[in-house]
Amino acid sequence: MYKLRMFNMKWQLLSYFFVASLITGSSIYIALEYFREYFAFWEFKMWLFVLILAVCLTVGYIATKRWQRKVDELHLAMLEISKGNFSSRIDMEPVEPFLYLYDAFNTMASAVEQRVQLLQRLGEAEAIREQELTESAVMEERRRLARDLHDTVSQELFAIHMSASSLPKILERNPAAAGKVMDQLIQMSHHAQKQMRGLISQLRPIELNDMTLHEALEKWFPEYCRAHELQGQLDVAVHAEMSEAIEHQLFLIVQEGMANVVKHASAREVRLSIHEREHQFILQLQDNGQGFERRDNSTSHGLSTMQERAQKLGGEVEIMSKLGEGTRVRVKIPRFSEHGESERRERGIEG
């Protein structure tokens, strides 16, 4: 690659100037040598000037077009990096005037890609640790719920059983008092049913467990919308395999986003979509609620946690909202291809 490293920008530019000068000098020499008698005519001088100018402009156009193409390649590669395509590289020829610039860009892009991948892996590892801690907390919560069941519902059911067992004897001895016992039974059963519903709602899992993100959302999203009187629309179109940590973080982001809709948006409709691009996973949550001004975008809206979760995976969160026009939250997570990474390693070894 570096065999002709001296053939850089200045030498190529000088070569174009040399060609233009050589053509100009040759044209003047030929005109003076073979057409000297025509120099008396101004038309000849004008056409000679036009010819030399056209040739020089042609050489300049060829030079600038080639250099513009090189600059455009660099510009397009930079745009790809800015869009999240961290695998973007510029192919370099052995004789390349932009050799040093392209090589510096490719080195920078490789470093950025490696750092974002490392950031994503660290975020995944941290997410897994958080999940383990959450599972431990869930076990403790289940033990608490078991105690609550024993101290509340179990005692209520025991009291209902005792009252129901004594009811036949009360009917024999004092039929008038049986009505009060029946009312107590109804109240206690209603209270026990209410307590049981509360405990069951706490026991409902909000984690992925062994389901994929798509399966968990298909089960959880409609139930959540019905419980909070929302008209929900779910659109998931992801065919690439996601890591467990990414699915877990995206599911938590969806839950936090939906909680924000319920608490702050006063919305009637909400649309959740997850799809993939060549180098990104895109999650979008949009509602038709009251919205908010950008200056009000603070932790009070519960958005900072979503930002932190996305940043753990090397991603970002875009929040678009306007008063009276709802809110749209878009999450972008980089998607790395193992096949592309192995190819880049092979090219690096060959280079």
Rank of each mutant, 00 (worst) to 15 (best):
S337C: 04
G179L: 09
K45M: 02
S321E: 06
V317S: 06
Q286T: 14
I52C: 03
G257S: 12
S300Q: 14
M320H: 13
Y224K: 07
Q284C: 08
I52Y: 02
A109D: 04
I206L: 06
L285E: 03
A192Y: 05
S243I: 04
G302N: 03
S26V: 09
Y34M: 05
E80K: 12
F221N: 01
A237E: 10
Q233A: 02
K322F: 03
H279G: 05
A267P: 01
A164W: 00
L171F: 08
D183R: 12
A104E: 08
E293M: 05
R197Y: 05
R143W: 05
Q131L: 09
V71T: 11
A146Q: 13
M139Q: 15
Q131F: 04
D91N: 12
R36Q: 08
S266F: 03
I274P: 07
R115M: 05
S189P: 06
I170M: 11
L171G: 07
V95N: 06
E318V: 11
E343W: 05
Q193E: 11
F98D: 07
K45Q: 14
A127G: 12
T58C: 06
I200P: 02
N8V: 00
E124G: 14
F18D: 06
I30A: 13
L14Y: 08
I30P: 05
R309W: 09
F221L: 01
G351A: 09
A125I: 07
L234Y: 02
Q284I: 06
R271F: 02
Y34Q: 12
D210W: 00
R347L: 10
Y29A: 13
L208V: 09
V238G: 06
Q12F: 07
S189L: 06
S88G: 06
M139F: 04
A265Q: 04
L101C: 05
K219A: 08
E223K: 13
P205C: 01
F17D: 03
E96H: 07
L51K: 15
E37S: 13
S21A: 15
F17A: 14
G179A: 11
Q255E: 10
M46G: 06
A164V: 09
Q255D: 05
M78Y: 06
S298G: 15
I246V: 15
E80Y: 03
Q231S: 12
T58V: 03
D91W: 02
E325A: 11
A109I: 01
Q307I: 02
